Simulated scan of single mutants.
Amino acid sequence: MATALLITGTVGAGKTASADALGDLLTDAGVPNAVIDLDWLRRAWPAPPDDPFQSALTLRNLGAVTANFLEAGAERLILAGVIESREERLRHEAALGVPLTVCRG
């Protein structure tokens, strides 16, 4: 069964670098994986006035990208991004469709 790990923390904490390094370690160990930077899934302009951080777009894109990675054989999904509440965590796990563990750096 596929699983996901989200590395979260403040801006500039090294989330993306950590996710990249973990993806490399999994690759070296022969574990099929994919690394997803949540910032790139939301990068669009303009943002809706009621969703300035593009949360809805992020989750839609996360679901689509995850489905493609899982279909391609990924067993571990490594995400880098900011989640600030339990509710956000639950929404991200639902979009992923696989169990999500969160690590705060």
Rank of each mutant, 00 (worst) to 15 (best):
A74K: 11
D20G: 05
I7T: 03
L25G: 05
T58L: 15
R104H: 15
D28H: 11
R104M: 09
A64I: 09
L100V: 05
N61A: 02
L26M: 04
R42I: 00
N68S: 15
V65G: 00
D50R: 01
A67M: 03
G9L: 08
G23I: 02
T10H: 13
E88I: 02
G14T: 06
S55W: 13
R42G: 01
W45V: 13
S55A: 14
A94T: 13
L41Y: 08
S18W: 06
R104W: 11
P32E: 05
A34W: 07
I78V: 15
W40A: 10
L70S: 04
A94K: 15
T58I: 02
I78R: 01
A34Y: 07
G73H: 12
A67K: 10
A19E: 02
P52M: 05
A64F: 04
A34P: 06
E87P: 00
L22W: 13
F53C: 07
R86N: 12
L6A: 09
R42Y: 00
E71N: 12
G105D: 01
M1Q: 14
V35L: 02
V31M: 01
S55Q: 13
T8L: 04
R42D: 00
D28F: 12
I78N: 05
R104A: 14
D51Q: 11
C103Y: 14
G12M: 08
G97C: 07
V98M: 03
A80T: 03
A21T: 07
